[in-house]
Structure formats: C-alpha cells, structure tokens
Design a protein around this nucleic acid. Structure first.
Length: 315
DNA sequence: AAGGGACTCAACCGCCTGGCC
DNA sequence: AGGCCAGGCGGTTGAGTCCCT
C-alpha cells in the first residue's frame, strides 16, 4: 500500500542550506514555534522537506545549542552513557545539554571510537578488544578480595546504590543473568544490598587512568539526602562529585523510545539519576510519587517499573 | 604546488512508534 | 481493531576540508 511521501520531492531543495533558507526557518519558528513540520516549509516559504527543516533546526539552528569542542568530561559521560544505552544517541544527547544526537553520533564515530580502541576497549561492547570470556571467569574468581571496587550492586526496592562498572564492560543484559549472591553473606547493613560478582581487574591494570564506573541510585528524599554525607552506603555522596563537573543545571527533557515523555519532562538529569532534591536538581515540579518511589522510577529516561536491565540490552 | 587519501560533519534515508480517527 | 500520519530515531552518505607525500 505504501506510505505517502513526507513531501513533494520533485519540488524540494536538497543539500546544504543557504543563509536565506536558514533565516526564513529561524524567522518562522520564532514567530510560530516548532511543530507541524510537514506544513512548515510551505508556510515558511521554503522549498524543503519538513523533515529537512526539523533536522536543520534541531541540529544546527536551535539557539540553545552548545558550539565548540567536546570537553573531557563530556567525552567520559558519553562513553558511560553509551555503555549503558548503546547507540541510543537521542537518549545520550538528552543528558548532554546543548548537544544533539547527530553531533554526538558523529563525535562518537570520529573521535571516541578511536579513543576507546587506543585504550584497548571495543567501542561496541565496551569490553577489552582481546576479551576472552574464559579468562574473565578465572580472573574473577581469583581476585575476589578486590570485589568492592568493581562489582555491581542492585537493589531498587530498598533504595540503595546501583553501581555499574564500565571497566568490566559486561553488557548489562549479562548482569541480570549473573547469580545474585545471598544478601546476608555480603552485607553487614542488614542485607539491603545485593552484589553481583563481575570483576575483571586486569582491565584496570591496563588502563589505570580509566574509571568507567557510574553509580545509579533510586530517588532520595530529603531525609535520606541529609544523612548521605556520612553514609558510605548512600550513592549521593559518591555520585555528586562525579557529576558536578558537568553542567546539568538546565532542565533537559527526558525521552523514552523516541518520544518526549510527558512524565519525564518534569524531571531534570539529577532526578533521572535518582538524586532529586539534591543541589543538582533543577526540577520545577515534584516527581510523581507513584512513578518514582512506589512502582519504580525513570532510570535515564527509560521508564521502568523496576530497574529492568534487560530493557537496556545493547544492540 | 598538486594529487590523493583521511577525516569531519551536515544532511538524507528508511524505518519505527504512538496518537488519532 | 486497523490504517494513516507526523514526528523522531539510528545508520549512512557525500561534499568540503585537512594533511601528508
């Protein structure tokens, strides 16, 4: 049956945009706002496809775009997010204010891929390029004493910290398949934390300057927050110094599966990492209690009932 | 100076998703 | 329930630029 074309291709310009076209597009969007891209070209007097207008606006003309080179902090954040989310460029872009998915995608393909390869890490899997699963298993068992630096901890329901070790670079989907050890065996704090044995210390030896750990915690409430500074079990004291060097202060809409979520638009990046009410938080409205604390929370924009790592499986 | 390979990044393409009717 | 549509996404392309020989 076929889909109707998004525009009349015979009468549209293609290729690089001219200054005049840019000006027309900017003027139109300033006057009428974004939206209805299909009809925008005609209304704005542009011989362009609506998609092309949208792309030009989003990737180049938008006034809030950050120009210039990526910082080292942005590099590392992209690497971390990519190892979590895979090629979900729009989700990654949602965490980098002023950067577009296209820009990040290009930057990944041209810079970061090479950077990771130079570090001996496969950019697709975030594993060492000469990764050998059997070696991992052996090493893991043999170096259990160092486990706290590398393992992953999960417990959404009890509001504790989730640590995903990117140095280990085991795909998240694999983590859930790992055997979860008995709470009591590994915790002195009442068995609130579960640990997954997933340690590959040799990676750190090879890249001693590389710390790819990202810790994620469920939303904290004020009370909890206040106690966090003295509690080593809380994620807040750990995560805040890590993210302070990146400017997350302006509110960034979270997106889910290609659509801006009406739920998520009220949540800033800090909240998406579970540290709402921290000084990083820029939310103007409070979190939906049901969504955030009762049935789960929007982890990095991936709204889940629980922290379902299977939904984060890489391509 | 010129040729050509490597690199960058804006733009395009096809497909997917969710809303609407 | 199913089809259509608009918006959005990730992959790919290709023109322009840079760099090396």
């Amino acid at each position: 049956m076929g889909r109707s074309p998004c525009c009349e291709k015979a009468h549209t310009n293609k290729g690089a945009w001219t200054k005049e076209e840019d000006d027309r597009l900017i003027a139109y969007i300033r006057a009428h706002g974004e939206g209805c891209w299909r009809s925008l070209p005609k209304a704005a007097g542009l011989l362009r496809c609506g998609k092309s207008c949208r792309l030009r606006w989003i990737n180049y003309l938008r006034p809030d775009l950050k120009r210039g080179n990526f910082t080292e902090e942005e590099d590392e954040l992209i690497i971390k997010l990519h190892s979590l989310l895979g090629n979900k460029w729009s989700l990654i872009a949602g965490r980098l204010p002023g950067r577009t998915d296209n820009e990040i995608k290009n930057y990944w393909n041209t810079h970061i891929r090479r950077k990771l390869l130079n570090r001996g890490i496969d950019p697709a899997t975030h594993r060492p390029v000469n990764d050998n699963p059997t070696n991992h298993h052996t090493t893991t068992t043999a170096t259990a004493t160092n486990i706290n630096n590398h393992n992953s901890t999960l417990d959404v329901a009890t509001n504790t910290t989730t640590t995903i070790s990117f140095a280990n670079a085991t795909p998240i989907s694999h983590l859930v398949k790992e055997e979860v050890e008995d709470d009591a065996k590994h915790n002195s704090d009442g068995g609130e934390r579960r640990k997954i044995n997933n340690t590959f210390p040799e990676i750190q030896e090879r890249c001693p300057d590389l710390n790819l750990e990202l810790r994620i915690s469920p939303p904290h409430h004020h009370q909890h927050q206040n106690n966090s500074s003295s509690s080593s079990s809380s994620s807040s004291s750990y995560i805040q110094p890590q993210i302070q060097h990146v400017n997350y202060h302006h509110q960034q809409p979270l997106k889910t599966g290609g659509r801006t979520s009406s739920f998520a638009t009220t949540i800033c990046f800090a909240c998406s990492l579970g540290i709402e009410n921290s000084k990083e938080c820029s939310c103007t409205t409070s979190l939906n209690v049901t969504s955030s604390s009762s049935t789960g929370y929007d982890f990095l924009g991936l709204k889940t009932g629980v922290l379902d790592y299977r939904s984060l499986e890489m391509k």
